[in-house]
Amino acid sequence: MTELDDIDGLAAEYVLGTLSLEERQAVSERRAGDAALDRAIAAWERRLGPMIETVTPVAPSPNLYSKIRAQIGLAQHVVSLKAREQALARRANRWRNAFIGASALAACAVGILGYREVNYRQEATQYVAVLQSENKLPAFLMTIDTRTHNCVITAVNAPRQFDRIYQVWMLHEKMPKPKSLGMMNEGEMNVMPMAPGPETDMLMNASFAVSLEPMGGSPTGAPTGPVLFTGKLVQATP
């Protein structure tokens, strides 16, 4: 039997699971740039992996798969959003290039803003806000359809509450205090039918927050419980 060298010993204990949190974090950072360590870890995963054969399988909750699908769908929305923004920026650039030389820069800037506005109005119909706490799974999803003026908030991953209720708020710099959009614990909630107009434009710049309140909602009309999740609207689909 040969002794384990430093790298192999570290990899083995990392895979075995006996390292402290700090040691684990150090290893996972180091493996990204250390091919020898990465290989050693993969080798130990292969060696010890068959042990999971002895673990009793446990059927997941029936809704786990749909939660996973929702999370993937959301990520794809965000990806397509980025792609759309890039496409939009490219078009705006083309337009600006065509204009340069013919007009002053200031006029151009105004032109771009106008162009973007028109562009969003014509094409964008759905916006999504992901309400989550930092680095955690999305808790609520808010979707707004600017064509049908429908606004729906769906609980996707909010921890179940028994004696309190989630209250959703809209915050905007032009509003003196947060506006309550409603209360919910699970499922879906339809929020105010939105009339197009200044209110719609305000929505796009607003922040949304979820606080935990006593049953029946905040007694003061402003969030009293901890604010658990926040988010802003992003354009999701044309």
Partner: peptide, 12 residues
């Protein structure tokens, strides 16, 4: 642990 893991590796 290190000895046991080394022994396991040798055996495998």
């Amino acid at each position: 642990l290190h000895r046991s893991l080394a022994q396991l590796r040798g055996c495998l």
